[in-house]
């Protein structure tokens, strides 16, 4: 089927005697949001690295649909203080992209005004928008986001996920991301993969939240994430509140 963007089959990664990933199988489908959750050291970043081709597999296969374009955002950049890098130059480092595409993406990510800024001067939220813009430049079929909200405060997280939702209204890009924000995961994902070296459980959020393996990893309280999300929404926590925060 052409709907399958990526198919991972029995993917294992070993480092010395340590097993980082143990026989992982899953597929990523066109247009879907798949979220990877798991405790620290569960192998989430290793799996992301394997998907983008930066990590050799000990066994198994990762098959990508021919011609698949992937947009990737790293958890963070190794930006040495001594490295001058204006955002516009950073975006140009993605390679040749038509000017119209650049304008569209900057507009989508609300990053137009950031172009002249040095990357080292950006806030966490601004940096995420620039990274997202870079990932979107080549009009990817699949976005791979490694803990996109790490280092953001709660309003910043909320704004990031709003932005992601906005972008997905405009283009049917599939998303594979690592996240710790269980509330958002449960509300926004089509599919959740729960990783702890092996896949403990995977499926639709509603099914996952009652899965014994999920409860064992994240505790009973995590199962309430679904209800808490509804609660959040009715109170309109998003924009106004966060703006007030920024001005203080």
């Amino acid at each position: 089927m052409t709907d399958i963007l990526v198919q991972a089959q029995n993917v294992s990664v070993k480092q010395g005697r340590r097993i980082l990933l143990d026989s992982i199988s899953f597929q990523l489908l066109a247009g879907e949001i798949t979220t990877l959750i798991g405790p620290n050291g569960a192998g989430k970043t290793t799996l992301i690295r394997a998907l983008i081709g930066a990590q050799a597999l000990s066994s198994g296969h990762i098959n990508k649909r021919p011609g698949l374009r992937i947009g990737y955002t790293p958890q963070k950049l190794q930006l040495e203080q001594l490295m001058p890098m204006p955002a516009a130059r950073f975006l140009a480092l993605a390679g040749k992209v038509p000017a119209t595409r650049l304008a569209t993406v900057l507009n989508q990510t609300h990053a137009t005004s950031l172009q002249g800024a040095q990357l080292r001067d950006l806030s966490g939220g601004e940096m995420q928008r620039v990274l997202l813009a870079r990932a979107l430049l080549r009009d990817p079929h699949l976005l791979i986001l490694d803990e996109p909200t790490q280092g953001l405060d709660q309003p910043g997280e909320a704004r990031f996920y709003e932005l992601l939702a906005e972008i997905r209204v405009q283009s049917e890009v599939a998303v594979f991301m690592v996240s710790h924000d269980l509330h958002v995961v449960m509300a926004q994902s089509d599919k959740v993969i729960c990783l702890n070296q092996h896949i403990c459980c995977s499926g639709a959020p509603a099914a996952i939240s009652v899965d014994p393996a999920y409860k064992a990893l994240f505790g009973e309280r995590a199962a309430l994430a679904v209800y808490q999300h509804n609660h959040d929404h009715s109170h309109e926590h998003g924009h106004d509140h966060s703006h007030g925060h920024g001005k203080h």
């Binding site: 992301i48 690295r49 983008i52 081709g53 930066a54 992937i70 947009g71 990737y72 955002t73 790293p74 950049l77 190794q78 930006l79 490295m83 890098m85 950073f90 480092l93 993605a94 390679g95 870079r134 080549r138 791979i144 490694d146």
Partner: peptide
């Protein structure tokens, strides 16, 4: 040059965009 600067910022980003470590 472009790949070298990209790998400086993030080796993963360079690989994801088709570069070689």
């Amino acid at each position: 040059w472009r790949a070298l600067v990209n790998a400086t910022l993030s080796p993963e980003l360079m690989v994801a965009e088709g570069g070689s470590l």
